[in-house]
Design a protein around this nucleic acid. Structure first.
Ligand code: FES
Ligand code: FES
Lengths: 149, 149
DNA sequence: TTAACTGATACTAAATTGGTATCAGAAAAA
DNA sequence: TTTTTCTGATACCAATTTAGTATCAGTTAA
């Protein structure tokens, strides 16, 4: 069971990529090459991110995209919601015979508790946090390579 | 984003159904009608549950299936794993360029933490617990209906 | 005026999902 | 002993989703 699909995956990676760039517009082509994401696929993904305000765009030569929000304000949940819809465990797991009153159904509460939990955890993981973690790893790694093995 | 698919959904409902039956073998036909699950589809699902030891079966007239374990020993995770594979957030979210050392990758840790969490939460929800909750709801409901509104 | 961009959208192959159909064999019951 | 009720195994199917491609139009900078 794969929770994140390619669109979400590529989107998050693009956002990280953009968040690590100093300033100015970055073209889809550059991101595509940098992250080995199929160009046309990426284009479509970026357009979706643009429509949802996560990134801004500028047309024409010298144009491209850049983050539309602070890295810390973009949670993985936001991206998931755009490409995969709201996380929901099950439409309604025990309908009909078994579960007659949806309103105050204990089972449903159980399910929805997990849903909330998953959402919470995913929103904690922001693009900003991912970038910070990444940089930490990078510096650790460069420290390591100074020591020959 | 639907976390549980029909197979898992139907499987859990069948298991609950079996767990609430007193004793003896229950035929697929009965479960199918009781839970409004397409018969042939259910057959395939039950066979999978049988292969995985969650339910036992007996061939021939008067045969059928019954739980192969205590209701409390069957977690929803077990069912998910059978029909949808192990919960994994993403194969490896930041490969290639971005993430060069998988071994001690902080991001990967982050992702895997969520994976563990989701798994934990789902294993807490056992068939036994679901049945107990259901019975609680049922009795609450019958209490309510004694009071006219 | 041309090259480097995005906007919009149509198309496709392959995989997955949800469901159906069939045939064989076991056991109980008639 | 034949028929009925059941599971075992497996092949098939249509619809949807996923991942990716292709095209054309319009914008901006050089
Ligand atoms: S689970 Fe759907 S109403 Fe109880
Ligand atoms: S996320 Fe895959 S190695 Fe870091």
């Amino acid at each position: 069971m794969k929770v994140l699909n390619k669109e979400t995956d590529y989107a998050v990676r693009s956002l990280i990529s953009l968040g690590m760039k100093p300033e100015g517009w970055v073209s889809a082509k550059v991101i595509s090459e940098e992250q080995s994401i199929p160009y046309q696929f990426l284009r479509r993904i970026l357009q979706e991110l643009i429509r949802n305000g996560l990134v801004l765009s500028k047309e024409g030569a010298g144009g491209g995209v850049k983050l539309g929000k602070e890295p810390d304000e973009i949670g993985v949940t936001d991206v998931i919601e755009i490409f995969q819809g709201k996380v929901q465990v099950s439409e309604c797991m025990f309908r009909k015979k078994i579960c007659s009153n949806r309103a105050n159904c204990v089972l449903r509460h159980e399910i929805m508790r997990i849903e909330r939990l998953v959402n919470q955890e995913f929103s904690k993981v922001t693009i900003g946090k991912l970038i910070a973690d990444l940089k930490a790893v990078e510096s650790m790694r460069s420290q390591q390579t100074k020591q020959p093995d």
